[in-house]
């Protein structure tokens, strides 16, 4: 068993099976680097993750610890291969499983928790969790107005009225497609 510590004051720790915690590439690498140390007695501090978020992470990895490993593919930004085969380049369709749909904090008042979960999944390199979180947010904001998206994502409009008018002209063709 491995202990994970949140960034709270005082920190909160969770004890997690090693197989489950190794779904995090970050922690798996850390454990491999510290091979030989008694990690069961040494809590691992996670400075970017608070207790409620860590609790969600632990719940998710315990649920998915027996899943087959995901197929490794480079991320969009890193994928600079010139493989011209479009079929190979296409990302597999991400479908959010039923359990995960219930697991994700999807109520509007929980949206900040969802964003914290996405940040934690990214920091801990838990790609399948990051994928379903990104897919959920993408589905949520698709087809919505710009004002709705800003409100949902807690973002300010930082354009001047002139810039905004010019941009609206630029994307006018896409409205309704």
């Amino acid at each position: 068993m491995i202990q994970l510590c949140s960034n709270d004051d005082p920190p909160v720790s969770f004890t997690v099976p090693r197989k489950a915690v190794e779904l995090s590439k970050t922690i798996k690498t850390m454990l491999e680097d510290l091979e030989g140390f008694d990690m069961e007695q040494t809590p691992i501090p996670l400075p970017n993750v608070d207790a409620p978020t860590l609790e969600l992470i632990v719940k998710w990895v315990e649920q998915h610890q027996d899943d087959p490993p995901p197929v490794e593919k480079p991320r969009v930004e890193d994928d600079d291969s010139d493989d011209s085969d479009a079929d190979d380049d296409q990302e597999p369709e991400v479908v959010i499983p039923e359990w995960d749909k219930k697991f994700l904090p999807t109520d509007d008042e929980q949206k900040n928790q969802l964003f914290k979960l996405l940040n934690a999944a990214n920091y801990l390199e838990i790609k399948p969790l990051l994928d379903i979180g990104c897919k959920y947010v993408a589905d949520k904001i698709s087809g919505q107005t710009v004002e709705w998206v800003r409100d949902y994502l807690n973002m300010e409009n930082d354009y001047t009225p002139e810039e905004e008018a010019k941009l609206k002209e630029e994307i006018a063709w896409a409205e309704g497609l």
């Binding site: 991320r75 969009v76 930004e77 890193d78 990302e91 991400v94 996405l118 990214n122 990051l130 994928d131 990104c134 897919k135 947010v137 993408a138 589905d139 904001i141 698709s142 087809g143 919505q144 710009v146 998206v149 800003r150 994502l153 973002m155 300010e156 409009n157 930082d158 354009y159 905004e164 941009l167 609206k168 630029e170 994307i171 063709w173 896409a174 409205e175 497609l177």
Partner: peptide, 21 residues
């Protein structure tokens, strides 16, 4: 790279996302 993962699934709403910020 994570934001790009979100954007790649916004389909025809992608151009509109440029207006957000």
């Amino acid at each position: 790279d994570v934001l790009l993962r979100v954007f790649q699934w916004t389909d025809s709403s992608l151009p509109r996302m440029k207006l957000v910020c």
